[in-house]
Design a protein around this nucleic acid. Sequence first.
DNA 1: TCTTGATCCTCTAGTCACTAGAGATATTAG
DNA 2: CTAATATCTCTAGTGACTAGAGGATCAAGA
Lengths: 147, 147
Amino acid sequence: MAEVTIGMASKLTEIKIPTIRYYEEIGLISPRARTESNRRLYAETDLSRLRFIRHARELGFDIEAIRAMINLQAHPEKSCSEIDQIANKHLADVNRRIAGLQALKRELSRMIEGCNCGRIDECRIIEVLQDHGQCKNDHSHMNEKFK
Amino acid sequence: MAEVTIGMASKLTEIKIPTIRYYEEIGLISPRARTESNRRLYAETDLSRLRFIRHARELGFDIEAIRAMINLQAHPEKSCSEIDQIANKHLADVNRRIAGLQALKRELSRMIEGCNCGRIDECRIIEVLQDHGQCKNDHSHMNEKFK
DNA sequence: TCTTGATCCTCTAGTCACTAGAGATATTAG
DNA sequence: CTAATATCTCTAGTGACTAGAGGATCAAGA
C-alpha cells in the first residue's frame, strides 16, 4: 500500500489533522517522509503507531505513558513487564477515579434530594455547598484526577 | 470578626493564594476592600463565597456552573429550580463519567490479564492497543470527560 | 491551459483552571 | 534597625489539544 497524505491518515486513524501534527511536534512519531513539495507522507507503520496512540489516549493513558510504551516497543526483545506495570498503574488510577466519582455521585444525589425547589434563600444545594460541615463524605483526599 | 488578609483567607478556606487572586481576576468574587497599602481584605461573606466555590469545584462543577449559581444567589427570592437543574445536569455527567470509566476498567483488566509478561514483541497489551478490532467495548461514544 | 476549490504548509494564539516565578513593596518580630 | 515574612503585579508555563491567519500546492473540470 502506498503512502498517504495527512488528510487520508487523519481519516484512516480518526485523529484530527492538527493533532497528528501536534504528535509529531512532541516527538511521538518520528519525522515523516515528505513529498518534494514538503507534504507529509504516512506509511502503514505510521498509521499503526497513530492508531496505537489514539487507542491508548482513549483508554486514558497520558502522553508520557504512551511515550514510554513507544520507547519500549523499540526494544522488542525486552520483557514486557514494564508495559504491564504502566497498564497496572493506570488501572489503579482508573479505580481511584471511579471511587472518587461514586462518592461524588452520592453527595450530589443527597444534595439534590434535599432540594424541594423553593426559593433560593432556602435552597438546600447552596446550603450544602456553602457549609462543608454538612458534607458527610470527606473527599479532601481527592486529587485533580477525580474532578 | 475583623477582615483578614489573603494569607489568612487562604488558610481559612484552604484555597491557595494565587487561586484566590485568579478567582478575583475571572470575576467570581467582586473587587475586594483593600488596605491603604493595597492589600486585599476579606470579610466573612467573602470567605463564605470562597468556601462555596471550593466545595463546588471539589464536586466537579466547572467555573461557569459556579458563576451561574453565584448569579442566582444574588436573587434569593427566585425559585431555586435553576440551581437544581445545574446540579442534576452535573449528576448526569458524573454518571456518564462513571459508566465510561467502568468500561475502561473492564478493557484495561482484560488487556492486563492477557499479558503473560513475555517479550515485548509478543505483548498482548501492545497488540490490543495497536489493533482496535480486538477491542470488544466500543467507547467511541466517550467524550473528553471520560479520558 | 486556466481556474477554482480542496488540501496542505508553518506559525501563533487560545482553551481550562490553575501554578510558578520574578521583582518590587510592605509589614511584623526581634 | 534589620531581617524575615507577606503581599503586590505581571508574565509565562502546564496538558493535550484546537482554531485561525496567511501562503503554497494539487487535482479536476471548462
